[in-house]
Simulated assay, not measured.
Amino acid sequence: MADSQDTSRTAVKTYVPAYQKAEWQDHADELDMSQSEFLRTMVQAGRRGFQGGTEEPGSPDADPGGNGLETRLLELLSDDTYTWDELLEAVSDDIESRLDETLEELQAENRVRYSGRHGGYTIVGDDGE
Score class of each variant (00 low, 15 high):
Asp80Asn: 10
Gln107Lys: 15
Gly128Thr: 02
Val91Gly: 04
Ala108Trp: 12
Asn110Ile: 00
Ala90Gln: 14
Asp29Arg: 15
Arg113Met: 12
Lys21Met: 08
Asp85Trp: 11
Glu109Arg: 15
Lys21Asn: 03
Glu101Asp: 08
Glu55Lys: 10
Ser8Glu: 05
Leu103Met: 06
Ser92Asn: 11
Val12Cys: 02
Ala11Leu: 14
Met42Gln: 13
Ser34Tyr: 12
Ala18His: 05
Arg9Leu: 13
Asp61Val: 04
Leu74Asn: 13
Gly52Thr: 02
Val91Asn: 09
Gly116Phe: 05
Met42Asp: 01
Leu73Tyr: 11
Asp79Ser: 06
Glu75Ala: 11
Ser34Gly: 05
Val43Arg: 10
Tyr15Trp: 10
Ser97Trp: 15
Asp94Val: 08
Glu109Thr: 01
Leu76Gln: 04
Arg40Asp: 02
Ser36Glu: 09
Ile123Leu: 14
Tyr121Ile: 03
Lys21Leu: 09
His27Ala: 05
Gly68Asp: 12
Ile95Gln: 05
Pro64Ser: 03
Glu75Met: 13
Glu56His: 06
Asp79Gln: 14
Met1Trp: 08
Asp126Gln: 12
Asp6Glu: 03
Asp61Glu: 10
Tyr114Ala: 07
Met1Lys: 09
Thr7Met: 07
Asn67Phe: 15
Asp79Thr: 12
Glu30Leu: 11
Ala62Arg: 12
Gly58Ile: 01
Asn67Trp: 15
Leu103Tyr: 15
Val16Ser: 03
Ala22Ile: 01
Pro60Ala: 06
Thr41Arg: 15
Gly68Ala: 05
Met1Val: 00
Ser78Ala: 12
Val112Thr: 00
Arg98Met: 13
Val12Leu: 14
Leu106Lys: 15
Asp61Ser: 08
Leu106Gln: 10
Leu103Lys: 06
Ala22Trp: 11
Lys13Met: 10
Ser34Met: 02
Gly116Ala: 04
Glu104Asn: 14
Leu106Ala: 09
Ala22Gly: 04
Leu39Thr: 00
Asp32Lys: 07
Glu37Cys: 02
Val43Gly: 03
Leu69Lys: 13
Pro60Cys: 01
Ala108Phe: 10
Asp29Trp: 10
Arg72Thr: 09
Ile95Phe: 14
Gln5Phe: 12
Asp126Trp: 15
Arg117Gly: 07
Met33Arg: 13
Thr7Gln: 04
Glu104Arg: 15
Leu99Gln: 09
Gln5Val: 03
Gly53Asp: 04
Ser115Asn: 04
Ser36Gln: 06
Gln20Lys: 13
Arg47Cys: 02
Asp127Glu: 10
Ser97Asp: 05
Gln51Val: 02
Asp93Tyr: 11
Thr83Val: 06
Pro60Lys: 12
Arg72Phe: 09
Leu99Thr: 04
Thr41Phe: 10
Asp80Cys: 04
Ala108Cys: 01
Asp6Ala: 01
Leu76His: 06
Ala11Met: 08
Pro17Gly: 00
Ala2Thr: 06
Arg48Ile: 01
Thr41Gly: 05
Gly52Trp: 13
Asp6Cys: 02
Leu76Gly: 04
Ser97Cys: 03
Arg117Asn: 03
Asp61Trp: 15
Asp3Ser: 04
Ser4Ile: 03
Ser8Thr: 00
Tyr121Arg: 15
Asp26Phe: 10
